[in-house]
């Protein structure tokens, strides 16, 4: 996993509440057995006017110019700004894979759905929860100011808007893994002995759950 570094980027305002993972990456693209290549189909049903299929040539697609990702001022944006309950619905990790593959490393929203939120961290994406007022403020700016950018400083847990910076909360362990680009399987396996010990005691307590 790539380390999450301090960076600034153009903000892409996605002005919808309850954006679900079916919208982030429609199911026909879930048939891939890989983790990459989903970026071109991020928000497929909103981004294009025709129905997309995996392995389709992008240049033949009908672009929906109204959709935010297709508007020139947001091209190359790396920070997605969203409304409440972002990422609800299915647990598909294809959703963060698509977001990452598109080039987005940070999502700001007033709230996130649980599974999506934790999936982001496994893929080097930082989901930042900010208040309704603050996100509203950023929405207005990103709609009115050309190339409105924010700087994200994960180390100090700050979103920086020009002269002003705003604090955000994040679980220490998750922050550490993002900053170091750590795979948490490796970390968990450092506890191999503890797991084995637990398992043997557990087997004694609940013998019907682990059979030889």
């Amino acid at each position: 996993m790539e380390k999450y570094k301090r960076h600034s980027g153009v903000v892409i305002p996605l002005d919808r509440a309850n954006v679900d993972t079916d919208a982030i990456i429609p199911k026909q693209f879930l048939k891939s057995i890989k983790k990459t290549g989903f970026g071109k189909n991020l928000f497929d049903e909103w981004r294009y006017r025709d129905h997309g299929e995996p392995d389709q040539d992008e240049s033949t697609r009908q672009i929906n110019h109204e959709f935010v990702l297709n508007q020139p001022q947001y091209k190359g944006g790396t920070i997605l700004l969203a409304r409440e309950n972002f990422g609800c619905g299915s647990s598909r990790e294809h959703a963060p894979w698509a977001i990452l593959d598109y080039g987005i490393r940070t999502i700001i929203a007033p709230s996130f759905a649980d599974i999506f939120y934790s999936n982001c961290f496994k893929n080097g994406i930082l989901p930042i929860t900010l208040s309704e007022e603050l996100t509203q403020n950023f929405f207005e700016k990103s709609l009115n100011i050309a190339k409105f950018s924010l700087e994200i400083d994960l180390q100090h847990q700050k979103v920086i808007d020009g002269e002003t910076s705003y604090h955000f909360d994040i679980d220490d362990f998750k922050k550490y893994c993002l900053l170091e680009g750590l795979d948490d399987i490796g970390l968990t396996l450092k506890n191999e002995n503890d797991i084995q010990l637990f398992e043997s005691q557990y087997k004694k307590n609940y013998p019907w759950l682990i059979r030889e």
Partner: peptide, 20 residues
């Protein structure tokens, strides 16, 4: 609980999950 693919891999390898 429903989990994502990275967590599927985590459970395959460790029989454990990191949760709050």
């Amino acid at each position: 609980m429903g989990i994502g693919t990275s967590e599927v891999e985590h459970v395959l390898a460790t029989q454990c999950l990191i949760v709050r």
